[in-house]
Amino acid sequence: MTAAIEVDKLYFRYAESSPVLEDVSFTVNSGDVGCIVGPNGGGKTTLLRLICGLLRPTSGAISIFGRSPAAARRRIGYMPQSVAPDPAFPIGAGEVVLQGVLRSCRHLFFSAEDRRRAAAVMAQLGIEELSGRRFYELSGGQRQRLLLARALVGDPELLLLDEPTAGTDVLVQQDFQHLLGELRGKVTILVVSHHLQYVSSSYDYALCVNRRVHRHELTHELPFEWDKVFSFEVGRIEHSENCACLGGSSAADGE
């Protein structure tokens, strides 16, 4: 199996501040579906942005499909936690999704094929009725699904999602788990989760990010019927002693 993401002895710090990520090494196999967990300020989003090539490592190396993050960018579908432009930015929901197939500065107009693809992805996510709406009219949950559609429409080989279901209700979370199931095998997926210990059992592994990164497996033997709380099958992340995620002293001081 080929590696989708290889991170080797990665260090990262913002300008003059203390390091956000230290001595991080891990490999993600192509086709795996994983999640990133960890305390607030532990560096989850920073790690995702480094993989995207939006930030550069202070030292160490990241390779995506054997290439640098910047070179592999267009094979990545990225969904940020939120976009915060001018709150009244005059843009239609359909136009936002189309940005996902924008290819370069030379890309002047969207073809009928691009539009057809955008419509198909919106239909797949059940948001086709939003296409005529304005972005600023949409609710938080609708915006999230729109940003997810934008990440998917470019046919990515690696999908990076930053808290795609934060603040959404149970039904949306169920839909999302269902979608992950549909995408499994077609694309490598890494999802930042805001849960620390119990995550969907559909993930193959969890990366615990708290300045250092540890890879954990999921157990499916649970002492309590958590499925009823989450409304989808969950697994427990086996945190180890040295990752200090739960109750231990947090190494993080602000993101």
């Binding site: 995207c52 090539g53 939006l54 960018r73 267009r74 990545i76 990225y78 940020p80 976009v83 432009p85 930015f89 843009i91 136009e95 936002v96 189309l98 940005q99 996902g100 924008l102 290819r103 370069s104 500065c105 890309h107 002047l108 107009f109 969207f110 934008r150 470019g154």
Partner: peptide
């Protein structure tokens, strides 16, 4: 000429960068 590019950069600069736009 660059309508879509300028629009994408104004709406979400990081995502535009991810699409290979300078």
């Amino acid at each position: 000429g660059f309508f879509q590019v300028i629009l994408a950069c104004s709406f979400d600069e990081e995502f535009a960068a991810m699409r290979g736009i300078r």
